[in-house]
């Protein structure tokens, strides 16, 4: 094969001395680069890759806490998908997870967009308003959950029941967290309350990157508020909406805190999302670690799509910045 002219010459033009083979193969600064990267690589391999692989191995073992594991191949998966004891509760957790995540993400997206549009206007007290509306994001989730548990309390002391009795003259008490038909919706409301500010933040950041000239031009053309939103704001926000919604889908589906502190998956599994199920199977009740690991692994394919799209988007954003 003939050497392509130009490629070798560029090298010799930059460095005057001939470069050692290692530098040519690994890059100019490879030594110092990997020294700088070593801690990061240790975290990625030791804390993520290793547990990830050992989780997959664990899912093919029968392992009770405190005992030696035995290899069972795919039996845990079969047990969850079609087995007599666990398939019912597993498929229930699929349904609950989908409703919980889908509804929470959709409403957070909608409310976050409204909030960001309002905060993007110019008015007196704008900075204070932003600080106030972002507050729920900073409060520990467990405290949010405990507070809402108190708001939902099924006795006349709970805020909502108190207000209903005192101001609306209702006679009955609503059991928001103990009624199987209400519990999931009650938990979703809490997830929305805390999760919306993150969307607002991301959308607001993206809105402020839109050049104001675009709006001025549209105003001169006589476009009204709705036209300006659908023709300028919304198209510019598509990347932010995609990234935010996908990130939030991963986080919402995998968070256990609200459900743990509000209902623990009950009543009668009405709020048993899959991480809660993994916790109940692996740590709280039966202490079947292998089975619990299989629950998590079975849900992973759902997130691969989101992770794939996000990685591509985030890398391309990084490259352009």
């Amino acid at each position: 094969m003939a050497a392509i002219p130009g490629i070798g010459q560029r090298h010799s033009a930059v460095g005057s001395a001939p470069r050692p083979a290692a530098t040519r193969a690994l890059g100019r600064d490879w030594k110092i680069a990997w020294v700088f990267l070593l801690p990061l690589v240790l975290v990625l391999v030791g804390l993520v890759a290793y547990p990830f692989v050992s989780g997959i191995i664990l899912s093919m073992q029968q392992k009770v806490v405190g005992q030696d594991p035995t290899w069972v191949g795919l039996r845990n998966y079969r047990e969850l998908l079609v087995g007599e004891q666990y398939s019912g509760i597993f498929w229930n957790s699929v349904r609950v997870s989908v409703i919980y995540t889908g509804v929470a993400v959709a409403v957070k997206l909608l409310l976050g967009m409204c909030m960001a549009l309002l905060l993007n206007e110019t008015f007196r007290g704008q900075t204070l308003m932003r600080a106030v509306l972002f507050l729920p994001w900073a409060v520990p989730t467990i405290i949010v959950a405990l507070t809402w548990r108190w708001i939902y309390d099924g006795s006349p002391s709970g805020l909502i029941n108190y207000v209903r009795i005192e101001f609306f003259e209702q006679q009955t008490l609503i059991q928001f967290l103990a009624d199987p038909s209400l519990a999931l919706w009650s938990v979703i409301v809490v997830a929305i309350w805390q999760g919306t500010p993150f969307y607002t933040m991301m959308f607001l950041a993206a809105m402020q990157a839109i050049p104001t000239e675009q709006y001025e031009a549209a105003s001169l053309d006589g476009a009204n508020v709705f036209r300006r939103f659908s023709d300028i704001t919304l198209p510019s926000l598509v990347p932010a909406i995609t990234i935010t919604a996908l990130l939030s889908t991963i986080w919402t589906a995998n968070s256990i805190n609200f459900i743990f502190a509000l209902t623990r998956g009950g009543p009668v599994n009405a709020t048993m999302t899959f991480p809660m199920l993994a916790y109940e199977v692996g740590i709280a009740g039966a202490r079947q670690l292998g089975l619990a690991a299989a629950v998590s692994v079975l849900f992973f394919p759902l997130f691969i799509v989101a992770i794939y799209i996000l990685t591509k988007r985030m890398l391309s954003v990084e490259g352009r910045a």
């Binding site: 989780g55 990130l247 991963i250 589906a253 995998n254 692994v297």
Partner: peptide
């Protein structure tokens, strides 16, 4: 992006 729920067990 890998969810913690996948790793906690």
């Amino acid at each position: 992006l890998i969810p913690a729920a996948l790793l906690f067990i």
